[in-house]
């Protein structure tokens, strides 16, 4: 058994580059997903019914589709429409678009739970449109929804593992390579599991940091 872990150690570069790729994938799609959610959420809350309804269908649709199938469609299905993306682009697009829907719904939930008056004060003090959202509405939303957004980040990390199936060299893919090259399945995958755990612990630490900021403000 110790020999197995020694083999994994000898392949540490592969594993670390997998961890690096998982981190890059997760961070990029979390940021891009949040940015898209910042557009989707006001649309969900819009008084223009058609706009709210269109975005609602997209958001609920995404929440009913398994991520892996969505990633398959982006990677294998889009070429039918003449859109051909490599595995990195498809992986990033799939993770980003899919989780943007979840993040938008999270922010909407937090928005509905916010008191109305501070937002109204923003309007009364001359804020409107995107500036009202960015300066007055959004910051308290991010603070209030911090823990839930953190959970979603963990979900993004976990969903990124699905992308091993389209041969994206992320952490699980690296562990698979090591296992098939040296036949050390336990050592290879359990190492990956603990690296995922570490990643999530970092996210949780970040969340509790945000929560400290938030508790000073409520």
């Amino acid at each position: 058994m110790i020999r197995d872990f020694a083999i994994v150690w000898s392949e540490r570069d592969l594993l670390l580059s997998g961890l690096g790729n998982t981190t890059i994938l997760s961070v990029l799609s979390a940021i891009a997903g949040l940015v898209i959610a910042f557009v989707l959420t006001p649309a969900l809350m819009s008084k223009r019914r058609w706009l709210a309804l269109t975005v609602r269908v997209f958001v609920d649709g995404m929440r009913c589709v398994p991520f892996l199938l969505f990633a398959y469609i982006v990677y294998y299905g889009l070429p039918s429409f003449g859109i051909r993306l490599d595995n990195w682009s498809s992986g990033l697009v799939a993770l980003t678009v899919y989780h943007a829907a979840y993040l938008a719904e999270i922010l909407r939930g937090a928005w509905v739970a916010q008191p109305r008056e501070p937002i109204e004060a923003g309007v009364a003090f001359g804020f409107s449109g995107p500036r009202l959202f960015r300066r007055i509405i959004l910051p308290p939303l991010l603070l209030a929804a911090g823990p839930v957004i953190g959970n979603q980040m963990i979900q993004i990390v976990k969903d990124s593992a699905f992308l091993t199936i389209i041969a994206l060299p992320e952490l699980t893919h690296a562990a698979s390579s090591i296992q098939s090259r040296h036949y050390v399945p336990f050592a290879a995958f359990i190492t990956a599991v603990f690296l995922y755990w570490g990643l999530c612990l970092v996210i949780e630490a970040g969340v509790s940091g945000i929560d400290r900021l938030a508790s000073a403000r409520r």
Partner: peptide
């Protein structure tokens, strides 16, 4: 619980299936 909540199902499945 903490470890399993952080483990992607693919990774867990591959671990069990091969190990």
């Amino acid at each position: 619980v903490s470890v399993l909540r952080a483990t992607p199902l693919v990774t867990l499945l591959l671990l069990l299936f091969f190990a």
